[in-house]
């Protein structure tokens, strides 16, 4: 007779996967490794999609893992003695079932998320860009259109890494890359978009709360990828306008004066 312990061990290993998996998700929010604080208007849609998909895949995951555990436990060779397994040459019904169920689920997800996707990637607000962001190894070069609202005119304001936007307003970012693939990622605003050399990609969002958050690169873009970090400051319209004006005055300086270091 084979060692009953081995069968026990392996079945417990398979049991540990769903148990630990669920435990990790249960603990994560309380140790602050969960979704960062959402300060965007559309973030709720994204987050609820995320939770929905998490729940759906979670159920499938737990069910599959439990099944695995149960099979390893139940049909352990040592426990069943000499009893032989039955040989089955495929089951058409079963295959149809396990193809159709995931297909239906995926199709459902594809349709269910369409609206959120369209909101984020297709229904662009009709407006001129608020700011142009040019990603390059390893920083974010920013250009604001200035009072005339047009990019590429002499009143443009040039900055680096220090993105400011007004709160509760549609923001349209024109995203470019100067060298390689980068990804413009604002975790708190639930925005992530690849920057592709040669393309001008529109990205839009609406911030719902003032504060300062990270702007990071989410596409491995070279050895300095880890340090390709900027900052987004969400502020009231008045503060934003005052900031723009101060920065513009600094840019147009004809005399040396102490730089206003408000970084």
């Amino acid at each position: 007779m084979r060692n009953r312990l081995a069968g026990l061990f392996w079945s417990l290993v398979f049991l540990a996967v769903p148990v630990l998996g669920v435990a990790v998700f249960a603990v994560a929010p309380s140790i602050d490794v969960w979704l960062p604080k959402d300060v965007s208007a559309h973030g709720k849609d994204i987050d609820s999609l995320f939770y929905f998909i998490l729940a759906l895949t979670g159920i499938v995951f737990i069910a599959t893992e439990m099944l695995l555990f149960w099979f390893v436990w139940k049909y352990d060779e040592a426990a069943r003695g000499d009893q032989k397994a039955t040989y089955i040459q495929g089951s058409h019904t079963l295959e149809v079932i396990w193809t159709i169920i995931p297909a239906v689920l995926l199709l459902f997800l594809a349709i269910y998320q369409m609206n959120a996707w369209a909101d984020m990637k297709m229904r662009r607000p009709v407006m001129k860009p608020t700011v142009e962001v040019v990603a390059r190894q390893f920083e974010w070069r920013l250009r604001y259109p200035g009072p005339d609202g047009d990019l590429g005119t002499p009143d443009d304001l040039f900055l680096v890494n220090d993105l400011h936007v007004p709160v509760d307003e549609d923001i349209l970012v024109q995203l470019k890359s100067m060298d390689v693939l980068h990804s413009f990622f604002l975790p708190n605003l639930r925005v992530k978009q690849d920057a592709v050399p040669g393309m001008k990609i529109p990205v839009w969002f609406k911030a719902s709360e003032v504060g300062q958050y990270d702007l990071v690169c989410a596409e491995l873009c070279g050895w300095g990828h880890y340090k390709m970090k900027g900052r987004i400051t969400i502020e009231s319209r008045e503060d934003f306008d005052a900031w723009l004006e101060a920065k513009y005055r600094e840019q147009e300086a004809t005399q040396a004066e102490p730089l206003q270091e408000d970084l």
């Binding site: 190894q137 920083e139 040039f158 680096v160 890494n161 300095g224 340090k227 900052r231 730089l259 970084l263």
Partner: peptide
């Protein structure tokens, strides 16, 4: 300090302003 804060656009020198003063 200005060079480190602004970086040198057009070259590979990035901005280090976020390191702090």
């Amino acid at each position: 300090v200005t060079i480190l804060n602004n970086g040198i656009n057009g070259t590979s020198m990035p901005s280090f302003a976020l390191l702090g003063e």
